[in-house]
Design a protein around this nucleic acid. Structure first.
Lengths: 151, 151
DNA sequence: CGGCCAACGTTGGCGCGGCCAACGTATCAG
DNA sequence: CTGATACGTTGGCCGCGCCAACGTTGGCCG
């Protein structure tokens, strides 16, 4: 009996939104980490650099809050960024507990480079959807996300 | 300057579908693992039991293919299920490489119990969406998923 | 028939993302 | 002054997705 491999996921799964969500997200994450891996970056880098660009220098704790990254993980990611001079840590003169994190010019370039790679990945990810549908999807996800991220 | 905590994620992130997807999926996964954790279950259990219910007894490799779970992870999950007699492994008489995995009556009950918990979780997850919108979301995700899971 | 490749179950390990606990230091409100 | 709180840092855990390796077993083809 040769496993004709009509492998379709069980109906119960295909009918479960959370499963659709996590599976699709898994594919998306795979595309992203592969794509970013090729340019020696990862998701946390982009998030942090994006926050620095938009809101300017900030403490690590603030960065973590804005990006939804745990304080401890911010440390590791910033170490990686700082090692390549994409970011700089300097003590806050007004509060010696804090580090003020600043993006360097190289960091800005890196951000744009990552962003460029990412937009190509989005196209790959959403290939089967029309622009209108992509918008629909984004808006639906945004609403669900917003609903679950208010403390 | 006291961090008034107007913490909104950077615009770049909010405009990136893959980020919306993975973030929303992260929330979904949190709800699921918490909910299932409360009844001593986890995602892999549900997937495997659902496959067994729909397609009947199968080898571990086939289960893995149908559920999108790696062979090695199937082993671990089945160990957990077998330890609670929700599932039984028996050697395939026609092919001694294979184990035939069968769901027990207790397994069937467990499946329904998990399914019940999951439907409540879906409602929680999709709370801000109307039934029509939930359908839209599911159909969009299904299409993206289907596009990326054809070998 | 023999030999080779493929599939199977299993073990062990890796990576990412998300999270928590703990510590020492520093700050601020009472 | 004292206690609560925030900060950066270290170290660890979990779930999920993967990959490599091994010994066993089966199918195929020369």
């Amino acid at each position: 009996m040769e496993t004709t491999d009509g492998s379709q996921p069980p109906t119960r799964l295909r009918a479960t939104p959370s499963w659709l969500l996590t599976q699709t997200a898994a594919h998306a994450a795979r595309l992203v980490t592969e794509g970013l891996g090729r340019i020696d970056a990862r998701g946390y880098h982009y998030r942090l650099l994006a926050a620095l660009e938009e809101y300017g220098p900030a403490s690590q704790a603030e960065l973590g809050r804005r990006c939804g990254i745990d304080r401890s993980d911010v440390v590791a990611a910033l170490n990686e960024l700082a090692a390549r001079d994409l970011v700089r840590r300097s003590p806050d003169p007004t509060d010696r507990r804090r580090n003020i994190v600043t993006m360097t010019a190289a960091g800005e370039r890196e951000l744009h480079r990552i962003a460029h790679t990412l937009t190509r990945i989005q196209d790959d990810l959403l290939a089967p959807l029309t622009p209108t549908e992509r918008d629909q999807l984004s808006r639906l996800l945004t609403r669900v996300l917003h609903h679950h991220s208010r403390p």
